[in-house]
Amino acid sequence: MFTHIILGAAQGSTLYIGDMLFYAILFIVLMALIAKFAWGPVNAMLKERADRISDDIDSAEKSRKEADELAKQRKEALDNSHEEATSIINNAKDSGAKERELIIGNAQTEAKSLKDKAKQDIEQERADALKSAQDDIASLSIEIASKVIKKELDENSQKQLIDSYIEGLGDSK
């Protein structure tokens, strides 16, 4: 068949120029159809897949970073909370101690004042008792004295008085 080309080139009649044209057009049309129905969609899909994969990798990287960040934050928060708890306990201890001091102080002063008052009362009571005893003794002395003075006037009466006294003594005995 190659001879046809040689002969065709020589004769100019049997070289299938029409075939060449036909194949060129056929090939271009085939290429256009494949481009429209297969090449475009397939490549779009391949690109989409590549994009998706790269996105997935990126987002995985990103979420890993976020997780790291979050863990770090949590650790910090935990450390802070430890410190905070310690300070709260210390504050409570301090204020407790202060309160105790205050209460004890108050109690002591109150007790002191009560004691003082009781002492005072006792002193007063004693003074009052002494005073009334003095009064009683004075009045008894006066009474005795007056009785003695009254009976000194006569012998009889003096005797009588002594008797009465003795009687009185006997009675009282």
């Binding site: 009649s13 049997t14 070289l15 299938y16 120029i17 029409g18 075939d19 044209l21 036909f22 194949y23």
Partner: peptide
């Protein structure tokens, strides 16, 4: 133009 039916 000459066409070859077989090729077509």
């Amino acid at each position: 133009l000459t066409f070859n039916t077989t090729n077509l």
